[in-house]
């Protein structure tokens, strides 16, 4: 009996291919299962918990004498750390290394595993021999990666707030402006009542920055043959650009670097938020995201899968 006859007898018909949106949906349905099933997915949460615990212990024992001196130069006279160190202060300051160093590393690794890692393991070709547009596959993975970055951001901020408030209570948020990269002198004070909004805004903005990094990581991951190659390349590019951003004599270059705009979330903790600059950064981040993602889709579509 041939297949047509067999199908006719059993009422079976061969399915049709998926559209791009159908492909995105198909990937979304299962990509999170794959992500959550991998042990390495959970490692960043453990690392964040360990680092945040360490930060809390350090904040507990540190006397902040240098910080008090800094505040004095900005006409804020504090007698001891108890006058300004609270849960909000700890969270805002700990977000700097967490969002500049840790979460970018975690996002780059997750992205490397999602495409190049699957190419290395052979599962990418098993996915690509399905009637699924490659762009749909990549967009679905990008969406899950953004969700993962958001989960890491929310987890980090929530745990920082929980530990900080439990150990140091609440109060107004004091920050030294120059620490938060606005290039201005002085200090800022955000009233306690406004801090919740500021943290939500900062978390969303920082996650947008991570989405841009995720798009860059996917672009590299879609061209690399191994996960290690993908995340080493991504992190090399990220830290190279971050290094450029820290060189004072290259200040003319800052507006064109994506990390400048990725770090703009820090301005959410200024006394007076510069809304105009934030919009400019959002537009830049959007443009970078579209550029990286479009390049990833075009190159991935044209790529020969030989692994």
């Amino acid at each position: 009996m041939n297949e047509s006859a067999a199908n006719a007898a059993s009422g079976r018909t061969a399915p049709e291919g998926l559209s791009v949106l159908g492909g995105v949906w198909a990937v979304l349905r299962f990509e999170w299962v794959k992500l959550l099933g991998r042990r390495i997915t959970w490692v960043p949460f453990l690392v964040l918990a360990a680092v945040i615990t360490l930060i809390t212990i350090v904040f507990h024992y540190l006397e902040f004498k240098t910080t008090i001196t800094f505040f004095r130069t900005a006409s804020m006279n504090f007698d001891s750390k108890n006058d300004f160190v609270n849960g909000y202060y700890m969270t805002a300051h700990a977000m700097l290394p967490v969002f500049r160093m840790l979460i970018p590393i975690f996002v780059a690794v997750a992205s490397g595993l999602m495409v190049a890692g699957e190419a290395e393991g052979g599962t990418l070709r098993a996915c690509l021999i399905r009637p699924l547009p490659r762009s749909g596959l990549l967009l679905g993975k990008f969406a899950i990666l953004c969700g993962y970055a958001l989960a890491l951001s929310v987890f980090a901020i929530a745990l920082l707030l929980a530990c900080g408030i439990a150990c140091f209570g609440t109060g107004d948020l004091y920050t030294i402006n120059v620490v938060f990269q606005n290039g201005e002198g002085g200090a800022s004070m955000v009233p306690a009542a406004e801090t919740a909004d500021r943290f939500v805004l900062a978390a969303l903005f920082a996650t947008m920055g991570m989405a841009v990094l995720a798009a860059l990581a996917l672009l590299i991951s879609s061209l690399a043959n191994t996960a290690a190659m993908a995340y080493v390349l991504t992190l090399s590019i990220y830290f190279a650009v971050l290094t450029l951003r820290m060189m004072p004599f290259l200040d003319w270059l800052y507006p064109y670097l994506f990390v400048t705009h990725m770090m703009r979330w820090q301005q959410c903790f200024y006394e007076h938020v510069k809304v105009g600059e934030i919009y400019v950064s959002l537009v830049h981040l959007g443009a970078y995201l579209i550029a990286f993602l479009s390049a990833a889709m075009v190159l991935f579509k044209e790529r020969d899968i030989q692994s």
Binding site: P15, F30, V33, K34, T123, A126, I129, R130, L137
Partner: peptide, 30 residues
Amino acid sequence: AKVGAFVERPAFYPYLTGRKNLEIFAGLSG
């Protein structure tokens, strides 16, 4: 959509069950 295939060797997600693997790959075909 009319083809079932494997190339070189069948590849799966080792940390998932056989059933879940099939669900995932069939899911990518609709």
